[in-house]
């Protein structure tokens, strides 16, 4: 097992390198960050000076090599705009994004597991049909639009929840309240998707022999559903969960913008808009790392849940 993990970790290196190369080239075909930052009132000589200082006039491969050389030592460079360290900037934003995505993930699971199981146990029931319509509703709405409408209803009209911003960590009262609307915006669409997936997996499992055997043995239905059917139908859900991690982070980009959320997603959007290469580079790299590690974690858990799978 450990050898497997180690091998997987090693194989991540080229992936991460590739990500950095792609983002690096992308950012360097776009506009001049210095002019964008300085605005129209600064003379061109000053812009040129600053560009030279930042090494932006060097050939792109030289720039990449320089960046890479520092990056392997854990130094992701400094922001062109703020002159602050990229690692520091990311560090300050990670918590907000993680707390938001984790709550969103919880919402997803808390809704989709019971809903999916009940739908499967009683297929074509009123509940099943309702959950289907419900699911299609959430998957079909653009999530920034949902966010705006949540703000309008729960923030402006009803005044139940804070409109925007992160008013503290997840475990504080104010903080928790401010997490609710963005987490719903982020977590409801995948919840809809997962419900359907769990339902179809459960349906498949329920018809399998060992469940019939269990039934034959006269075990109570709840035990069968929870212990046997659910456990086995959750494995593909986990795979999907791993595959969906990037999706959740992608959604966070939009959600954070709507809710003025101080997370990685907005840092990335802002930096893309301002052509702050080192920050975009660092942030995407960090996200990619999170994604591949999440996938690895899922694979490892997969092995743990399903003893039939062996790795070497």
């Amino acid at each position: 097992m450990w050898r497997y993990i180690f091998k997987r970790l090693v194989s991540l290196i080229p992936t991460v390198l590739g990500v950095s190369l792609i983002v690096f080239s992308l950012m360097h075909i776009s506009g001049d960050p210095v002019r964008l930052m300085y605005g129209p009132n600064v003379a061109q000589e000053k812009v040129d000076e600053r560009r030279a200082e930042l090494g932006l006039d060097d050939p792109i491969l030289v720039q990449y090599a320089r960046w890479l050389f520092r990056a392997v030592q854990g130094d992701l460079g400094k922001s062109i705009r703020t002159n602050d360290r990229v690692t520091t900037m990311i560090g300050q934003r990670v918590e907000a994004t993680l707390s938001l995505t984790i709550l969103a993930l919880l919402i997803t699971l808390v809704i989709s597991i019971p809903a999916g199981v009940i739908s499967a146990v009683k297929p074509y029931s009123v509940f099943d049909n309702a959950s289907r319509v419900f699911a299609l509703f959430w998957v079909s709405a653009p999530n920034f639009w949902l966010g705006l409408i949540f703000i309008l209803i729960f923030g402006v009209q009803l005044g139940w929840l804070p409109i925007s911003g992160r008013h503290g960590p997840l475990w504080s009262v104010d903080g928790f309240l401010s997490h609710i609307l963005p987490a719903l915006t982020l977590g409801l669409p995948p919840a809809a998707l997962f419900t359907r997936l769990i339902r179809s997996n459960m349906l498949e499992v329920i018809h399998e022999d060992y469940i019939r055997t269990a039934r034959g043995k006269g075990l109570p239905e709840t035990v069968i559903v929870v212990k046997h059917a659910m456990r086995n139908s959750l494995i593909p859900v986990m795979t999907l969960l791993g595959l969906r991690m990037p999706w959740l982070f992608g959604g966070a980009v939009v959600t954070e913008t709507v809710f003025a959320w101080p997370g990685m997603g907005r840092l990335m959007v802002d930096s893309i808009m301002k052509r702050d290469y080192p920050v975009v580079q660092g942030a995407v790299l960090f996200l990619a790392l999170l994604v591949v590690l999440a996938n690895l974690l899922v694979d490892v858990m997969y092995a743990w849940v399903d003893p039939r799978i062996k790795y070497d």
């Binding site: 792609i22 950012m27 992608g250 975009v280 995407v284």
Partner: peptide, 12 residues
């Protein structure tokens, strides 16, 4: 697959 699609599309 390691880069969230929306993020990549945004960057491009």
């Amino acid at each position: 697959l390691a880069i969230p699609t929306l993020v990549l599309a945004l960057a491009i």
